[in-house]
Design a protein around this nucleic acid. Structure first.
Lengths: 158, 158
DNA sequence: GTATTCTCAACTTAAAAAGTTGACAATAAG
DNA sequence: CTTATTGTCAACTTTTTAAGTTGAGAATAC
């Protein structure tokens, strides 16, 4: 890997919506076992536009991973213990797949547009490998887990 | 991970452009050491819209990873041996980072929009881990490597 | 029955990705 | 030195996706 080739910054992988969903779920996990938590409270604590959170929580509720209750003192709670929800689950739920390319999705597998025949695509095997490693990691951490923060400094590249 | 929660399919990670770039580079790698390869030939062989490939190859050329030559019998060739170019290099070049979220990029690190303070973000450590594992894999495979295709069937999920 | 809280489809806005155009620059061959 | 060939590049159009809002409605509690 020679050369100081210039870097760009775009093509973010986890959308805002997915990230909001993760934070909302973390919030619910933190309050698991207590009464329903109101949307407004989550929005405020997690810095998420309330109206948008509406969409996200309804969706999670339709998925059945969150229970909702209307009316006074209503709100949301996890429908499942936080120990039974992995980050992999959440990401698959919100974005359909952990794969970097369509053809490397184990579940939602489909042909990549404008690609070669799959038998001739040399990138696919690598992307499947990446997907599997990613899944392994993301499915190994649960909403109930405490996650240690590492200092994270720019020593390695990328 | 209980429940048959419905899956979606969107938010693809490697853009068309990045995938085209990878295939174009593979093509050049296959013809490394031979004369310059013309854009039209690459476009045809790799099923890439020729005019769009123009943009991509010019870019790669500006990055210095590809050499170009104009005029009759001109074309493109790798400026660097395929053994010295990893898939990680290519992806970083085209999309700036291997990270799933902005705050987990080692190089192009920046704060995620509308997130909590980094010290309070519990997702970050996990995403850094994912980034590192991905980088490890992608930097371990070179354009010169033959990649074995595995049958890849939907046994595990996601 | 009224205040509260979630529901949801439809809509708007904004941004990014994908791809095209066309004038121009370099090179080779005659 | 002229012509055909091939890459360069900024500007543009089109399409798609993400992000967020609106507003009417449904369930619940008091």
């Amino acid at each position: 890997m020679p050369g100081p080739w210039r870097l760009r910054h775009d093509e973010i992988v986890l959308s805002q919506k997915t990230r909001y969903a993760i934070r909302a779920m973390q919030h619910l996990a933190d309050n698991y076992g207590q009464g329903p938590i109101q949307l407004a409270q989550i929005a405020e604590a997690q810095n998420i536009p309330a109206k948008f959170l509406t969409t996200i929580l309804s969706e999670l509720s339709r998925f059945g991973i969150v229970d909702s209750q209307r009316g006074k003192d209503g709100g949301y709670r996890l429908a499942v213990s936080p120990i039974d929800i992995t980050y992999g689950d959440l990401i698959r739920l919100m974005r359909g797949s952990l794969a970097l390319v369509p053809c490397a999705s184990r579940f939602a597998h489909e042909k990549c547009k404008n690609c070669l025949e799959e038998g001739d695509c040399r990138t696919r095997a690598l992307m499947l490998e990446v997907r599997d490693r990613t899944a392994e990691l993301l499915d190994g951490v649960r909403l109930s887990d405490h996650i240690d923060l590492v200092p994270a400094q720019a020593d390695s590249e990328g």
